[in-house]
Structures are given as C-alpha cells and as structure tokens.
C-alpha cells in the first residue's frame, strides 16, 4: 500500500450537520475535520448510525431536507468552500468533482429507464453532443467497469441485471464525468462475498488508472486493510481516531478503536466467542456530557465527564481520548 503524497484536494474543517425534529436536535455529524489527498483512499469506519453516510451526503450538500441542515464548518474543495456555493454551482460539483456510489445496487438505478438512458443522461451534462457520440461514450464507460457486451447491456433495464452488474453500472455512472473524488458508501455490503472482492479490485484499478481519491465508508476492517491508506474512526458523530492504516491496526489508541479491532475475527486464533462491545451507541438526540464513549469504556474515569481534546500521537495519527493526556 503506497502512501499517497498527492496534493490535498479536499479539506473538511469542523463540519456539523444536525437534524431538527419537533422535540429535539440530532447531532448526526458534530464537528469533524479531515482532509483528502489526490489518489489516496480514506476509510471512514464506524457502527451503523454513527454519521458516516450523513458525512458523505454533507460533502455533496444532499442532506435530507428539510430536517437536516449543515450548521457549521467548511468543506474546502481545491480551496473553495462548498458551503458558500449556490445550488446551481453545487450541481456542477456533483458528479463532476465529487461523486458517490450508494450502498444498495438493487435500488440505486431507476427501474423505468434503461441503463443507456441513465448513463447518457449523466454524460450529457458535460458533453454537449449528439446521441451517437454519447452512446459511444456510454459503451466506453461500461467497458471501463468490465461489463461484457456493453452495446447490448445499454438496452437492458435494471431488473434484467444481477446485483454485481448493477453495482458496476452505478460505478460507471458515478465515474462517467471523471470526478476528482468518489465517495463509496459501503458499496459491497449488498453483494455476494466473491463479487465483493472483484468490485474492490475494480475500484483499485480505476483509482490506479485515473488517480482519483476515494472516501470509503465501511464497517468492515478487512475491507479497510485492503482498500485504504488512512482511516477515520467515527463514533456518535465525532471522529475519535484518525491515522494511517498501519498505525491504526498496529497501535490503536482510542478504546473504541481497540474494541472494534478486538471484535474482528482472526484466522489464527481459536476463540469460543467473538468479542463484542458492551452496551449501545448513545442516542444522538440525547448525548451524554463529555466523552461519548465513556458509558461503554472500560477505562472511563471522572475526567471523562469532559470531552477530550484531540491528542497527537505521532505525525498523522490522532485520537480523542484522555488516556493520551500526560496527567492521566
């Protein structure tokens, strides 16, 4: 795994996305910061409901309206703040600069239009040319994601395709406008294990070819090890630990990361029962004071009643935990 040293293309600072319901405020994303370099893959890991997907949708400014709102922070793409852009300008960012692959291929394609239509619709946004040329481009897009007989496939409707094939098509659509960044939101969770591997390889190949940056959202550390250069571990809307894959696997510092690692089955060890983390993630509309993991943390002390600052462990490896404080 080569550590990418491309220039920083995306910088997220103190991003906050809240959901307003009649009775409460749900802090789905509560002050996260990270950056992304050209050609690298950043993993975002965490349990369901920890804010991974909302982070992704925030980057595209597609947070479900009207309940969800980005209430603070900056999203700097090539130095320009996306939060300051008009809806029209944002539309040209979507697909062309930042694109996304959704989790479930079964539902991500429109059932009433054929593949060609959906692919060419996307292509037509930047290529103002005749149907014939668009068709040729669509054929090439499908070829890029290893779809056999692309000319014929373009005529097919989504229900005529397998899940793995559909996810390739979704990938082709996401990549059709040559974005700088692809957000892959658990793109393989809904696929068969054998197909998963193929798909991950495909993404890696495309990345090597085009130099795009990937934000890979997953809850699977095996996938992280295979795909990512760096990882951000999310818990209840915060990034609690952030570092290179090597640092996180060899030297996890946050108790939550450690617990997640321990709950991954290992081939070389024989255990009677897989480790699981006690308790439940906190309710996002009723967050505890202080460290959000404290109620489930075996190391928690009084100090944890206060939210910890972000401690630098070494260059590029940080964690939000009081145990890293010299006075602990």
């Amino acid at each position: 795994m080569a550590t990418a040293q491309g220039e920083v293309i995306l910088e997220v600072n103190d991003l906050r996305t809240y959901f307003y319901t009649r009775t409460s405020v749900v802090k789905a994303v509560d002050g996260i910061s990270f950056n992304l370099r050209q050609g690298e893959t950043l993993g975002i890991v965490g349990e369901s409901g920890c804010g991974k997907t909302i982070t992704a949708l925030s980057l595209l400014r597609l947070v479900p309206k009207p309940a969800g709102r980005i209430v603070g922070g900056e999203i700097l793409l090539h130095g320009e703040d996306l939060l300051q852009k008009s809806e029209d300008e944002m539309r040209r960012v979507r697909g062309q600069k930042i694109s996304m692959i959704l989790q479930d291929p079964q539902t991500s394609l429109n059932p009433v239009f054929n593949i060609g239509n959906q692919l060419m619709e996307s292509l037509a946004l930047t290529h103002k040319e005749g149907r014939k040329n668009l068709f040729q481009r669509a054929v090439e897009s499908l070829r890029d994601v290893n779809v056999a007989a692309p000319e014929r496939r373009l005529e097919d409707f989504p229900h005529q395709m397998s899940g793995g094939m559909k996810q390739r098509v979704v990938g082709a659509i996401a990549m059709s406008l040559e974005p700088d960044i692809i957000i892959a939101d658990e793109p393989t969770t809904a696929l068969d294990v054998t197909i998963q591997l193929q798909y991950l390889r495909l993404l890696k190949d495309i990345q090597a070819r085009t130099g795009l940056a990937i934000i890979f959202i997953t809850h699977d550390f095996g996938v992280v090890a295979r795909m990512c250069d760096r990882v951000a571990v999310m818990y209840a809307g915060h990034i609690v630990e952030h570092g290179s894959v090597r640092d996180l696997f060899n030297d996890p510092q946050h108790p939550y990361t450690q617990a997640l690692m321990d709950s991954v089955p290992k081939l070389e060890e024989k255990v009677d029962r897989l480790y699981s983390i006690e308790g439940q993630p906190p309710l996002l509309w009723d967050l505890p004071e202080g460290c959000l993991f404290a109620p489930r943390c075996p190391h928690a002390r009084d100090k944890c009643q206060e939210y910890p600052p972000t401690f630098d462990i070494k260059e590029g490896h940080t964690a939000d935990c009081w145990r890293l404080d010299p006075s602990w």
Binding site: R91, V93, S99, L109
Partner: peptide
C-alpha cells in the same frame, strides 16, 4: 425518498 432519486441528484441532474 428512493435511492435512485438520490443517485440522480448525485449525478448532478437538475432538480
């Protein structure tokens, strides 16, 4: 509320 509408928006299709 469907995923394919989400994908259409992600593509940058006008509202």
């Amino acid at each position: 509320d469907t995923e394919y509408v989400k994908l259409a928006r992600i593509k940058g299709v006008s509202e």
